[in-house]
């Protein structure tokens, strides 16, 4: 194992890790937004919105994220969407993650007993009031863990933007493998940084999950 080489190149990996983190945070925020909208559409009382929500989930979960990213980045200019690689990465991965989060959020909401909403309605609360005061706080607690799984997947999926040349961890590893012919060392550097990010995120999710539970 070439420790000298690793020590020489690790600052570049560290810098790339920040790009991976930034990419993950922005993608997660967009994903949560899309997931919330998607779940709202899927649970809407209007059939058109329900259909749109279901089609969104089905298509984006049914095709490879890499292809979605390519359509947006390479195909976007044909329909007037001009994005740089980083923007395309955030938007493409965010929309993709949103489809998975839609199902997570919707699943948590529909798992709350119907009697809860009924009890709110009989007290005179409106549909919306009983949703956000009664159903949502309970569903929110149930969502933390599965959204954490979505987040874990999302962080690993940010590696895909290497294929459109965003200089993040996987791209950096690929480039140094090409120039140094030391695949194992480069994998180790990138892998350790990924595992730190994923481990820290996992701890954060576990902490949040513990914090929101009712004792």
């Amino acid at each position: 194992m070439d420790i000298d080489l690793m020590l020489r190149v690790y600052p570049f990996f560290l810098e790339a890790a920040w790009t991976t983190i930034l990419l993950s945070v922005l993608t997660a925020l967009l994903g949560l937004t899309m997931g919330t909208l998607g779940a709202a559409a899927r649970l809407s009382r209007f059939a058109v919105l329900r259909f749109i929500g279901a089609a969104y989930v089905s298509f984006f979960r049914g095709t490879p994220a890499l292809i979605q990213l390519f359509i947006l980045y390479f195909g976007g200019p044909q329909i007037g969407i001009q994005l740089d690689a980083f923007e395309a990465g955030v938007i493409g991965l965010g929309i993709n993650a949103g489809a998975y989060m839609t199902e997570t959020i919707r699943g948590a909401i529909i798992s709350i007993d119907k009697g809860q909403k009924e009890a709110g309605r009989t007290l005179g609360l409106s549909n919306w009031q009983s949703f956000y005061k009664i159903t949502l706080p309970q569903a929110g607690r149930l969502m933390v863990r599965p959204l954490g799984v979505n987040l874990n997947m999302l962080i690993k999926a940010t590696a895909l933007v290497a294929a459109i040349s965003v200089v993040e961890l996987t791209y950096t590893a690929q480039r140094y493998i090409g120039s140094t012919y030391k695949p194992f060392e480069m994998f180790l550097l990138a892998g350790i940084l990924y595992m730190i990010i994923i481990y820290a995120t996992g701890r954060g999710v576990a902490w949040l999950d513990r914090k929101v539970q009712i004792t």
């Binding site: 940010t158 961890l169 493998i177 012919y181 695949p183 194992f184 994998f187 990924y194 595992m195 994923i198």
Partner: peptide, 15 residues
Amino acid sequence: MGTPLLLQLFLIYFG
């Protein structure tokens, strides 16, 4: 489980 598949593919292919 803690690293991206794409990175693993690079390792295996070039490794």
